[in-house]
């Protein structure tokens, strides 16, 4: 079932995608010019906009239990994460707060329900989601962030400031290349994206579609 396109990323794509797919009412670019070239670029250095993926948050004393009932794996400690069914991520961002981002199907978030139990509150999460990937992503991070990611644990979120924007940075495992996800307030997405695009360009890192990251989409 494909919904009408009602959702858009704050970030304008660099060109019309060569292929795209609908994810929860939004269009996700799979590749722009040449899928194979983008796959190689992703190994070296590339930027990808995943803001179209749906995400949601839950807060409150009953949030943990409710999520468990929805078969969502619960990370043990604050700032830790677990993988969702289709490649999505659940992060524990505080003792009583979770942040979930769907995988590329857009279907691995808990169902929306009319009534939540007391003390479980869904939170609208429309953060922008930018992926910086490749072995040279370290060079780009070093130009925008004062946090030492060479010592950062994988699959653990770091709240820091990136190119002047407060962001949650998530070095992720399970991808074919070194990769950090950068979530920030959506209103800053264009500023942050432009800064990253400019620096990536100096290292010849292009903008790619999602297929290079999620090989199942091919």
């Amino acid at each position: 079932m494909s919904l009408p396109i009602t959702r858009t990323s704050p970030i304008l794509p660099p060109a019309s995608p060569g292929a795209s797919r609908d994810v929860a009412g939004a269009s996700l670019a799979l590749w722009f010019d040449d899928a194979e070239q983008e796959r190689r670029a992703a190994q070296r250095l590339a930027l990808c906009d995943l803001s179209s993926l749906p995400r949601v948050g839950y807060k409150g004393n009953a949030a943990t239990n409710w999520l468990r009932e929805q078969q969502v794996p619960i990370p043990a400690e604050t700032f830790e994460s677990k993988r969702l069914r289709d490649g999505g991520i659940v992060l524990k961002v505080a003792s009583d707060e979770y942040f979930l981002e769907a995988g590329p199907t857009g279907l691995d978030l808990p169902p929306q329900v009319a009534n939540f139990p007391p003390e479980c509150f869904p939170i609208v999460r429309e953060d922008s989601s930018i992926v910086l990937c490749g072995v040279r992503s370290k060079d780009v991070l070093q130009q925008v962030c004062g946090y030492d990611f060479s010592t950062a644990a994988l699959d653990r979120v770091v709240y820091t400031r990136l190119a002047g924007v407060d962001a949650a940075v998530f070095p992720a495992s399970g991808f074919p290349q070194p990769l950090v996800k950068i979530w920030s307030d959506r209103s800053y997405a264009v500023s942050l994206w432009n800064s990253l695009v400019e620096i990536c360009a100096e290292f010849e890192g292009p903008i790619i579609g999602a297929q290079a990251l999620f090989t199942d989409l091919a």
Binding site: T8, P10, Q143, V144, A163, G164, V165, D185, R186, S187, Y188, A189, V190, S191, L192, S195, E198, I199
Partner: peptide, 10 residues
Amino acid sequence: RRFHPLRRTP
């Protein structure tokens, strides 16, 4: 290079 992030509405 300096960063002057600006907020933009959707």
